[in-house]
């Protein structure tokens, strides 16, 4: 056996998970924003938790190919139902869509029915949040909360990145690509889907907790259908299946929303809708190409700035 070839393959495989210049640049920019943009920390905080939500959705949409309309609601119950569904035979896309949506609506009803705890439709105001580690108090400018959100986002991102490059992550891409073949090579498709659903649920839960902590406000709005639809849009703008889609999408979406809301405060929803329609008509692939192009450009720039870096293989699972 050509052992040189074996070593070469092992090296190439190991390099897949290596950090690319683009990624260093992204996180350095995020870190820089803590110090360089102190006046924008409130919106940056929103971007950070939106990014975490989107990351959670990307894990199931981009890596396992499940469309969820109940994402803003907690997945814990969703994963349980998914497990039940899996046991009782396969459901269609629409079935899954309706189950995720139904779970979200039920969660919302429950929250609505126990106003003592949730504040009902008015939401919970004046949530008192203890200082982080007993030292850092949240301030009204969002300095601490931004740093806090960013750290949580970064840590959870590292974890997701690790999972994506594991055999488990690869098997998810296989399930998404061709579930029939995946089960024909011994992959238990339903067990994998339930696992990633639960994992993503954890992320969504953390994102929800972050939201409540940093805004000292929790409302039923997070369960709403519109929120889930926004989240889909975030991910579509950024592209699915390469982890950064949710993060980049969150930045673009928030800035766009901010900009549109300044132009037409009441009717920004119209423009969001228009963007969705146009993205689909133009084709998500092409939109993905666009963000892919921006990424490639960023990589080329960073590589020029950091000479001697390894050549960058195209990240797996581009685009959609």
């Amino acid at each position: 056996m050509a052992s040189a070839l074996v070593a070469e393959v092992a090296r190439r495989l190991a390099r897949r998970a290596r950090w690319r210049p683009f990624e260093y640049a992204f996180w350095l920019a995020a870190l820089a924003s803590v110090f360089l943009l102190p006046g924008r920390h409130l919106i940056l905080t929103e971007i950070a938790w939106l990014a975490l939500f989107a990351l959670s959705l990307d894990l199931i949409l981009g890596y396992a190919g499940i469309i969820s309309l109940g994402h803003a609601a907690f997945f814990g119950l969703g994963s349980y139902v998914a497990a039940l569904l899996a046991k009782h035979g396969r459901g269609s896309d629409l079935t899954r869509l309706m189950v995720t949506l139904g779970v979200a609506l039920i969660m919302r009803e429950i929250a609505n029915q126990i106003p003592d705890i949730t504040g009902g439709a008015d939401g919970l105001q004046g949530v008192v949040v203890a200082p982080i580690l007993g030292v850092f108090h949240f301030d009204i400018f969002g300095h601490v909360s931004y740093a806090y959100c960013l750290i949580v986002l970064f840590v959870l991102f590292l974890l997701a990145r690790r999972v994506v490059y594991s055999p488990f992550g690869l098997s998810l891409r296989a399930v998404k690509g061709n579930a029939l073949r995946a089960s024909s090579i011994g992959i238990s498709v339903n067990a994998r889907l339930v696992a990633i659903y639960t994992f993503a649920a954890f992320y969504a839960g953390v994102a929800g907790a972050l939201l409540a902590q940093t805004t000292a406000f929790a409302s039923l709005d997070v369960f709403s259908f519109e929120r889930s639809a926004d989240l889909l849009l975030v991910l579509i703008i950024g592209g699915t299946g390469y982890l950064y889609g949710g993060l980049i999408g969150a930045v673009i979406f928030k800035l766009m929303q901010d900009w549109i809301a300044n132009l037409t405060p009441q009717y920004w929803q119209f423009w969001i809708g228009l963007v969705l329609v146009l993205i689909v008509l133009v084709g998500r692939d092409r939109v993905g190409l666009w963000t892919g192009g921006v990424r490639a450009l960023a990589e080329r720039l960073t590589r020029r700035l950091a000479p001697g870096a390894a050549p960058v293989p195209v990240p797996p699972g581009e685009g959609h």
């Binding site: 639809a229 889909l232 579509i236 929803q269 809708g273 969705l276 993205i279 998500r284």
Partner: peptide
Amino acid sequence: DQVLFTIGLVFMSVA
């Protein structure tokens, strides 16, 4: 795509 497209239409019609 169909879900995104028609949600977009819903948003537009609502606004």
